[in-house]
Amino acid sequence: MTLFVLVLLAALIFEYINGFHDTANSIATVVSTKVLTPRQAVVWAAFWNLVGALMGTAVATTIGRGLVDTNVIDMTTVLSALLAAIIWNLFTWWLGLPSSSSHALVGGLCGAALTASDGNWHVLHWHLIAEDGSHSGLWPKIVLPMISSPFVGFLLGAALMYLLLALLKKLRPRLIGMIFGKAQLVSAGFMGYSHGSNDAQKTMGIITLALFTGTQAGIFEGLPGWASFLETPEFTVHRWVMITCALTMAAGTAAGGWRIIRTMGHKMVKLQTIHGFAAETTAALVIHGASTLGIPISTTHVITTSIMGVGSSKRFSAVKWGLVERIIWAWVLTLPITGLLGYGIEKLFK
Rank of each mutant, 00 (worst) to 15 (best):
A290V: 05
R174E: 15
R172I: 11
S102N: 02
N120A: 13
L333R: 05
S100V: 08
G133I: 03
L335H: 04
G342D: 13
V31S: 09
D132A: 10
T208A: 13
A166W: 12
T61W: 11
G225Q: 09
I147M: 12
G189C: 02
K350R: 15
A183T: 01
G289E: 07
P140S: 00
L247T: 05
T70K: 09
G192L: 01
T299I: 01
H125R: 14
V72T: 07
A60R: 02
S312A: 15
A10M: 05
L82V: 00
T304H: 07
G265V: 01
G342R: 06
V30E: 08
T77N: 02
Q40P: 09
R315Y: 07
A246Q: 08
T253Q: 05
A290L: 07
Q272G: 12
V269K: 00
L163E: 06
L165R: 15
T282V: 08
G322Y: 04
A227Q: 10
T203C: 03
L156I: 14
A46N: 15
V332Y: 04
L97G: 01
A227G: 08
T253H: 00
G19Y: 03
R172D: 15
E325W: 12
G257Q: 02
V310A: 12
I179N: 11
A217E: 12
T299Q: 00
S100I: 07
A283M: 00
V319T: 03
S134P: 10
C110P: 01
L293K: 10
T292P: 11
L144P: 13
L128I: 14
P224L: 09
V286D: 00
V42P: 02
I63R: 01
T248L: 07
T305Q: 03
V324G: 14
A200P: 06
C245V: 07
W226D: 04
F229H: 12
V5N: 11
L50K: 07
T77I: 02
F220N: 09
T281D: 07
H125V: 14
H266V: 10
Y162D: 09
F47M: 08
L285H: 05
M308D: 01
L79I: 11
A188C: 13
T29K: 02
V324M: 15
T115L: 07
P98E: 04
S148M: 15
A279R: 03
L168Q: 06
F180V: 09
L348Y: 13
G137E: 14
M191H: 08
L138T: 06
L335Q: 01
L165C: 11
P150D: 06
S80Q: 04
A250R: 04
T115W: 05
